[in-house]
Amino acid sequence: MKPTYTNTIERGILTSAYKREIRENIANSKRVTLSKMKSIIDRHHEKVQSQTGTILQVSLFAFALILIIA
Rank of each mutant, 00 (worst) to 15 (best):
I68E: 01
I13L: 14
D42W: 00
I9F: 12
I22T: 01
T15G: 00
I66D: 06
A62N: 11
A17S: 04
T33C: 02
E21T: 14
A27N: 10
I26M: 04
R43G: 12
P3Q: 15
I69D: 08
Q49E: 09
L34A: 10
K38N: 01
Q57T: 14
K19H: 00
R11M: 12
L34T: 13
K36W: 01
Q57N: 15
L34V: 05
N7I: 06
E24N: 01
A70M: 13
Y18Q: 09
T54E: 11
M1L: 06
V58F: 07
M37W: 09
S35L: 11
K36G: 03
E10V: 05
T4F: 02
I13D: 11
T54L: 07
T6E: 12
Q51N: 10
R20Q: 01
Y5F: 13
S50G: 11
K19Y: 00
K30W: 08
A70E: 01
L67T: 08
E10H: 09
E46K: 04
R23K: 08
R20F: 01
S59N: 12
F63A: 12
K36C: 03
N7V: 02
E24F: 05
N25H: 10
K38Q: 11
A64H: 08
T6A: 15
N28D: 06
L67I: 07
Q49V: 08
V58L: 11
I26W: 01
S29E: 14
Y18N: 13
S35N: 07
N25Q: 05
N7A: 07
K30F: 14
Q51I: 08
T15A: 05
Y18V: 06
L34Q: 13
I68A: 04
I26H: 01
K2W: 02
L14P: 03
N7K: 13
R43Y: 07
S39H: 14
R43E: 12
E24I: 00
S39Q: 15
N28E: 05
